[in-house]
Amino acid sequence: MSFISYLLNGISLGSVYAIIALGYTMVYGIAKMLNFAHGDVIMIGCYIVFTMMTTMGLNPIVSILAAIVGCTVLGVVIEKIAYKPLRKASPLAVLITAIGVSYFLQNLALIIFGADTKSFTSVVNMEPLRLAGGKLVISGVTIVTVIACIVIVLALMTFIKKTKAGQAMLAVSEDKDAAQLMGVNVNKTISLTFAIGSGLAAIAGVLLCSAYPTLSPYTGSMPGIKAFTAAVFGGIGSVPGAFIGGILLGVIEILGRAYVSSQLSDAIVFAVLILVLLIKPTGILGKPIHEKV
């Protein structure tokens, strides 16, 4: 049963990566920008939940809703202040700005909350599911995380395909100038994309800290990098690709940690990414980009 347990843990961790990766893939697919401060938005969301539950004594649902609202607003502010002026700038300028925003959020958290690692209280109170006569135990956090990921991916795909705002996102992702000529508000659409991605980051952060109950100003850094890897792995710009890439990455990491080396698990994850990109540079579901001349 140990392999199945590891596999389920990998799917659970991969579900968190997938939710985070959705933020990366949406922003890149629509704004053609890489928001490397995305991982730190996760951390801010976790601190909001931690503060409201521990200091203010509020229930988990209210705390999570507050974190989603807080991170959504933060995402829009970051886009307006940091990224909007750089839409026609070089990728290097965008990268430097993203790193600057990331360090700003980390240092802001250090000033407000301190450098000490906090013990995060899980927001999931579901009893574990016991199968095979109690030999296989699936934690409540694992169940909720996997279900939440599936629901979010399906809801997001439905939103993009069936709503006017979603169609506007598709239009902007194809051609900003043409979309603007067709009456699409490009600025509003990009802001909405950042808002959705940041709101999802709050959910992912809460699920991550519920499974691994520690919180510090650097909590979101490595998960953010791995989620970006998952987005590239699955094909950045593709919502199903982010889901597949996240799940595969989580499974590879957990199995690598269990059967190869816990110290080398991160190296194994990035090695697999390099191998995939050598074979299929656009990722699993990514499409080649044809430059117009």
Rank of each mutant, 00 (worst) to 15 (best):
Y28M: 02
G29A: 05
G29S: 08
G29H: 08
K32H: 15
L34F: 08
F36N: 08
F36E: 04
A37W: 03
H38P: 03
G39E: 00
D40T: 08
V41T: 07
I42K: 04
I42D: 01
M43P: 00
M43Y: 02
I44W: 03
I44S: 08
G45A: 12
C46F: 00
I48T: 12
V49Y: 03
F50W: 14
F50A: 09
F50K: 06
M53V: 05
T55E: 13
T55G: 10
M56V: 09
G57H: 07
G57S: 05
N59H: 15
I61T: 07
I61E: 04
I61Y: 04
V62A: 14
S63N: 11
S63W: 09
I64F: 06
L65F: 07
L65N: 03
A67T: 03
A67Y: 01
A67K: 08
A67M: 04
I68D: 02
V69Y: 02
V69P: 02
C71D: 08
T72F: 11
T72A: 15
V73R: 14
V73S: 11
V73Q: 12
V76W: 09
I78V: 15
I78W: 01
I78C: 10
I78Y: 03
K80S: 13
K80E: 10
I81R: 13
A82H: 10
Y83V: 11
L86A: 09
R87C: 04
R87Y: 11
S90R: 12
P91M: 06
L92V: 15
A93N: 10
A93L: 04
V94I: 09
V94Y: 02
V94W: 00
L95I: 14
I96Q: 08
T97S: 14
T97P: 00
A98W: 07
A98S: 15
A98E: 10
G100W: 00
V101K: 05
F104V: 05
Q106Y: 07
Q106L: 11
Q106S: 12
N107A: 07
L108M: 15
L108T: 12
A109N: 07
I111R: 15
I112G: 09
I112M: 14
F113R: 12
F113Y: 15
A115K: 12
D116I: 03
D116L: 04
K118S: 04
S119M: 11
F120I: 02
F120A: 03
F120W: 01
T121P: 01
S122Y: 04
S122L: 02
S122R: 10
S122G: 09
M126K: 13
L129Y: 14
L129T: 12
R130T: 13
R130D: 03
A132Y: 15
G134A: 10
K135N: 14
L136C: 06
L136Y: 13
I138C: 11
I138F: 12
I138K: 12
I138W: 11
G140K: 11
G140T: 09
V141P: 03
V141K: 09
T142C: 06
I143A: 13
V144N: 02
T145N: 06
I147L: 15
A148V: 06
C149K: 08
I150C: 02
V151I: 12
V153K: 00
A155L: 10
M157W: 00
T158M: 08
T158N: 06
F159E: 01
F159S: 02
F159T: 01
K162T: 03
